[in-house]
Design a protein around this nucleic acid. Structure first.
Lengths: 66, 66
DNA sequence: CAGATATGTAAAGCATGCTTGTCACATGGA
DNA sequence: TCCATGTGACAAGCATGCTTTACATATCTG
């Protein structure tokens, strides 16, 4: 799954660690999402979208087959 | 997490099994989501929202603490 | 009554999400 | 150079999502 997390995080001037801390997850989790190693849970996806003042559908680009 | 899945499924005149089949998951998974036993994955949440012609944020009501 | 359909739930097992700890590498500043 | 910061990745372990199988209950219809 592709996402705009990296772009939006960098636009906010935050490190992966800082974003993780702001959302209550580890920096490795942010890294894994940005590098596509796995998809976030629904709850974390909502937190990310809200943090960026956006919606899940805008932040995460979900294809038909994943 | 509360959701409108049950209401929207019934409005569509579908059984849990029929909805599961339409989305490629088991009827138990639909049941578990409707009864709140667990939250769907992000991908399944997107599939459900799209199936109902809506957005994740509209179908799933996600509080601050989950 | 018997059979079909819909729902709720449980157990076991596998897949995925997330944690902490750790190592490695790159870059920039004193 | 040395040190701090940022990033990528891996392993082990725990939590959660989803599967199949199975059992129970309720309702409806013949």
């Amino acid at each position: 799954m592709e996402s705009e997390v990296r772009d939006r995080r960098q636009a906010a001037g935050l490190s992966q660690a800082a974003l993780g801390a702001a959302l209550g997850v580890s920096r490795q989790t942010i890294n894994a999402i940005e590098t596509g190693r796995y998809d976030p849970s629904l709850i974390l996806a909502v937190r990310l979208a809200r943090f960026f003042g956006s919606t899940i559908e805008e932040v995460f680009h979900i294809e038909d087959n994943d």
